[in-house]
């Protein structure tokens, strides 16, 4: 039996499920493209008479928050599920979902306050964003056992370290967002390409 159960069966199954979700890299491509587009609009929005770009950036963020999951699901329906099967994630109790959503909203609000209301200098905003992204990708890499997240975390950390070591250097948040988006898109696309090679379309239907 290839998928032999070792240790706690639930932890084993959760590990299998996490690898299943992250292995194809499609979510990384979607997030990367979003960061690229958002960074571009954010950069354009810095110029006077470019209110439309700021408005579009907010619209894009809201659209991403609401539509990213269905979009990834549709892409997976086309490319992933026919190859490795379909598993619908567990619907957690309402209270737990609300708590998680509240944490996400609070985190987003704190970030917005730091970036916009307190008018954090661009350099400080860059350092904060780089550190946050490094922490997020490091956590994802550890949780999903996916080296590409480790690479992204290392890239972010290197860049934060480089920026800290040069006090006179200015930093553009838009460029950072676009660089991170580019990295995420490329690594996600490589993961997807490897996934397609590893799991060719089966010749027989899977629903026995």
């Amino acid at each position: 039996m290839a998928g032999v159960v070792s240790g706690d069966p639930l932890r084993w199954a959760e590990g299998t499920l996490r690898r299943y979700w992250s292995e194809d890299g499609l979510a990384d491509v979607v997030v990367g493209l979003f960061l690229l587009a958002y960074g571009g609009l954010f950069g354009l929005g810095q110029h006077p008479h470019a209110a439309w770009a700021r408005l579009l950036a907010v619209g894009l963020a809201v659209g991403m928050a609401l539509g990213a999951r269905p979009l990834v699901h549709r892409l997976k329906m086309r490319w992933v599920y026919p190859r490795v099967g379909y598993a619908r994630p567990r619907t957690w109790p309402r209270g737990q979902r609300l708590r998680r959503a509240a944490w996400m909203v609070a985190g987003g609000a704190i970030l917005l306050v730091l970036l916009l209301v307190l008018d954090l200098p661009a350099r400080g905003a860059c350092l904060l964003m780089g550190a946050l992204m490094a922490a997020l990708w490091g956590w994802l890499g550890w949780r999903h056992r996916a080296p590409r997240y480790g690479l992204l975390a290392a890239f972010s950390l290197l860049w934060v370290g480089w920026l800290s070591a040069r006090p006179g250097l200015t930093c553009d948040v838009a460029v950072v967002l676009m660089a991170l988006g580019f990295m995420s898109t490329v690594l996600g696309a490589v993961a997807f390409w490897r996934f397609l090679r590893r799991y060719p379309l089966p010749t027989t239907p899977g629903g026995a």
């Binding site: 199954a13 299998t16 499920l17 299943y20 099967g85 379909y86 598993a87 619908r88 567990r90 899977g206």
Partner: peptide, 13 residues
Amino acid sequence: VVDEADFRYLLRA
């Protein structure tokens, strides 16, 4: 750990 899974997913897992 899932709500539901299809036969192919179970095969692989």
